[in-house]
């Protein structure tokens, strides 16, 4: 029984890592660090713990439905989703592989920013995901989704989105 649960747990992680983020479909919810824990109670009963990226992120509702659908269709009839707020989600939980996928998709991945300064923080230049140059500037701290900001590359003269360091 214990062995079965371990097998099931791996299976659940595998299923979850196939669920894409609706806004950045090249990345899964596991790669983004949104799945914090999987607990297999029995062969049909599983608890998935999620952490929200941003409090108001509308994609959270989509994830929950996708998780339930994916697990139900693989025989986990009872799926419970728990939300964990602490520790708060951070872009540090994203792997280098995930960041590279993001860049290849045309979104600049998060780069470390100085933490202490709150105003007009001297943010280091974000690397343009198109041409790889660093002559870029911030256009707006906010973008098309809560997790992104708008930047512009002075070298290739293209706008691009930057996944905020959070």
């Amino acid at each position: 029984m214990v062995i079965n649960n371990i097998v099931s747990k791996e299976k659940v992680w595998e299923l979850l890592s196939e669920i894409p983020d609706p806004d950045i479909p090249v990345l899964s919810i596991v790669e983004l660090g949104l799945v914090r824990d999987v607990e297999v109670i029995s062969e049909s009963n599983v608890i998935v713990t999620l952490t929200p990226s941003y409090s108001g992120c509308p994609a959270m509702g989509v994830f929950k439905d996708d998780i339930i659908t994916a697990l139900n269709s693989s025989g986990f009839c009872e799926v419970e989703i728990k939300i964990s707020l602490s520790p708060a989600w951070t872009t540090d939980w994203m792997s280098d592989v995930a960041k590279e996928k993001m860049r290849a998709h045309g979104i600049a991945p998060p780069e470390k920013e100085p933490e202490s300064e709150l105003r007009f923080a001297r943010q280091k230049q974000v690397t343009c995901p198109h041409c790889g140059k660093q002559e870029t500037k911030l256009v707006s701290r906010f973008g098309s989704t809560p997790c992104k900001a708008l930047w512009y590359c002075d070298t290739c003269e293209q706008p691009f989105e930057y996944f905020k360091c959070f």
Binding site: P52, Y54, S55, G56, C57, S140, F142
Partner: peptide, 20 residues
Amino acid sequence: LEEDLALTNISLDLFGQAET
């Protein structure tokens, strides 16, 4: 446009916090 996005993004954060 940028501020339209900013103000409504702030709104979204606030709604999310309220919901929690």
